[in-house]
């Protein structure tokens, strides 16, 4: 009965377009100038900034700025090319293997997710040996920056 086995194919094209608002707008404008913008509320710092503090529920007290150095809180090495996930504004998909990291910038209360690269090898086990939780990383800036998250090409280990 194998002739009675058929395939179904379909696709979902999800539109995730979004307007930044002031808080994230400041963060992205900062990236254009090779700066990481954050903010602070009652000694708790946020990189990227938050529109309001999750404890006081009020707007944070002041804007902050730093060079983006941070530590790896978690990471995963991706070995499969993605199906539908592409870099913004291009048809380009990340080349495998690539590393996604959860990165805590400076003393931030929360983390960002970005690429970790600069290992000078494509071998998965060699990459696994070179990366560890708690490792210090810093941003590598794109030459051409447009005020978006890929203005940071990736984070690289601080040696």
């Amino acid at each position: 009965m194998s002739n009675n086995v058929i395939k179904k194919e379909w696709r979902f094209n999800f539109d995730f377009s979004v307007a930044s608002g002031e808080t994230y707008g400041r963060f992205f404008k900062g990236l254009n100038d090779k700066k990481i913008i954050g903010n602070i509320c009652n000694n708790r710092t946020f990189y990227p900034p938050k529109p309001f503090c999750d404890k006081t529920l009020k707007p944070p007290d002041a804007w902050l700025e730093c060079d983006g150095a941070g530590i790896v809180e978690a990471f995963t090495i991706c070995c499969e090319k993605s199906n539908g996930v592409k870099f913004s504004k291009t048809d380009k998909k990340p080349d495998v293997p690539y590393v996604l990291g959860v990165i805590k910038i400076k003393d931030s209360e929360h983390c960002i997710i970005h690429f970790i690269s600069g290992f000078e090898t494509k071998d998965v086990s060699e990459i696994a040996d070179k990366i560890e939780i708690g490792m210090k990383v810093k941003p590598v800036w794109a030459t051409k920056r447009e005020g978006e998250i890929l203005d940071i090409e990736y984070f690289e280990p601080v040696i």
Binding site: E9, W10, R11, F12, N13, F14, D15, F16, S17, V18, A19, S20, G21, E22, G25, R26, F28, K29, N83, G84, V85, K86, S88, K89, G147, E148
Partner: peptide, 13 residues
Amino acid sequence: YNKRFEYNWDVPF
């Protein structure tokens, strides 16, 4: 500071 980001996931099943 507001800026619009165009982004989509085109996921085949």
